[in-house]
């Protein structure tokens, strides 16, 4: 870990101003940033401690949705009664992630911005385009059991590790960003992330100094909320595949469907065409397969991760079966 200048931010403006120049990083929970700094993968020259900024509230919006402060811990968000009652898929996703200790420290915005768990990104001795642009992707042609089958490029097939973000994607969350110039903006979570393409080291559309101040959840989605995470251990492991689903039945047919996927792609993955396959249809194995066909139309396996196509197909079918039980 390299030496850095430590600055405790007194306000959002103070934080963004200090972050605008040089190699600066905000630190709040620190559970991913310090992990990477210890490995000399993240190398900030300045750390701006935002952990004491007043961004830790969960407030109700006029539209019935929630405004979740960037610093709300994963544990608090999962345990919030409104989230448990109205946005069950989000609570479930959070509870399936990491450990009790990490959820107590990790923040909402930090969770969105956590970096990949690719083996090679985590090993500074080996090439990785995300860590060192132009050095090559070791996962392609290497050990890639945990890697992406969707959205990857010839430069990078690392996956996004978050569970929370997958649920938020299904819920059409937005993020609220404050820039160094003091301008606020909102953007859909889906637009926060960038696919790797030829620049896998650039993961979001945020500019230097941009600070996520909140996540906005729209009004509650009626229907069944399911988050299913498939992993190598019963707990405390990253997803091989995860499915966030909110399905609202309209009599015998599917009235509304929201689906997002983890473990498959460099970003939490939502494909509205998959949802469109379902809407207005009656539940059936054939329909689930059709949805999976749509999801996997562009899928590409790299050997060890080929199984993910089958795994997500079967997991999706099981989730949809459970979610589409006709409400009595």
């Amino acid at each position: 870990m390299r030496p850095f200048e430590y600055h405790r931010a007194g306000s959002v403006a103070d934080a963004t101003t200090h972050a605008a120049s040089g190699a600066a990083r905000f630190i709040a929970g620190g559970t991913n940033l310090l992990d990477l700094m210890k490995l000399d993968i993240e190398r900030p020259e300045r750390l701006i401690d935002i952990s004491r900024l007043p961004l830790d509230a969960i407030e109700e919006n006029e539209d019935g949705g929630l405004r979740i402060g960037a610093l709300v811990s994963n544990a608090d968000l999962a345990a919030d009664l409104r989230v448990r009652r109205d946005h069950g898929v989000l609570s479930r996703a959070l509870l399936s992630g990491a450990s009790g200790q990490l959820r107590n420290k990790a923040t909402t915005a930090g969770n969105l911005l956590q970096r990949t768990r690719c083996y090679y990104f985590y090993n500074p001795a080996l090439p990785c385009n995300k860590r060192e642009p132009g050095s090559g992707c070791s996962a392609i042609g290497g050990r890639n059991r945990i890697h992406a089958i969707l959205g990857g490029s010839a430069q990078c097939i690392a996956t996004h590790p978050s569970d929370m973000a997958v649920a938020m994607m299904a819920l059409s969350a937005e993020v609220e960003v404050m820039s160094a110039g003091g301008e606020g903006r909102r953007l859909p979570l889906a637009e926060l992330y960038r696919l790797p393409g030829d620049t896998p080291h650039i993961e979001t559309v945020l500019n230097p100094g941009d600070l996520i101040t909140a996540v906005l959840l729209p009004a509650p989605l009626k229907g069944r909320h399911i988050y299913r995470k498939v992993r190598d251990r019963a707990s405390y492991a990253f997803a091989l595949v995860s499915v966030a689903a909110v399905i609202k039945m309209d009599g015998a047919t599917i009235g509304a469907a929201r689906l997002a996927f983890g473990g498959l792609a460099p970003m939490p993955w939502r494909d509205r065409a998959v949802e469109d396959v379902l809407i207005g249809q009656s539940p059936s194995s054939a329909l689930w397969n059709k949805a999976a066909d749509r999801l996997l139309a562009e899928a590409k396996g790299y050997g060890e991760n080929d199984f993910k196509s089958v795994l997500v197909r079967k997991t999706l079918a099981s989730v949809l079966s459970d979610a589409s039980v006709r409400e009595i």
Binding site: I27, G30, T31, D35, S99, G100, N104
Partner: peptide
């Protein structure tokens, strides 16, 4: 492990359990 992967470093901060390896003393 020094990376939040084992829990041996768990302490309570303001009553909550956290991994003390993944947070800076100055914070």
């Amino acid at each position: 492990c020094d990376h939040g992967q084992c829990g041996a470093c768990t302490v309570l901060v303001n009553g909550r359990r956290i991994n003390s390896c993944l947070t800076l003393a100055v914070m």
